[in-house]
Amino acid sequence: MAVTVKLPTILRKHAGGEAKVGADGATLRDVLVDLEGKYPGITKNVISEDGGLHRFINVYVNDEDVRYLGSLETEVSEGDTVSILPAVAGGQR
């Protein structure tokens, strides 16, 4: 399945400055593996050390938060848009 992946600014340096790139896969995990193959280092901070989705990264498939779908195993369809959006978070502690 060919999907469009929208990248946050912080990841664009891995993809030659592009804001949107194409990738292939049947699940979100496949799409990220495909991206990593094309743009090494791009998923380093998206997937955590335990192989899951990083706690401070939100990923949406067509505006649906994948945490409420199947996380990295969420299935994607031809033409879907995958948005990677790091959390905006912090605080005095």
Partner: peptide
């Protein structure tokens, strides 16, 4: 925390 989570 703010520094660690400054993703933008």
């Amino acid at each position: 925390t703010d520094r660690r989570l400054a993703f933008y």
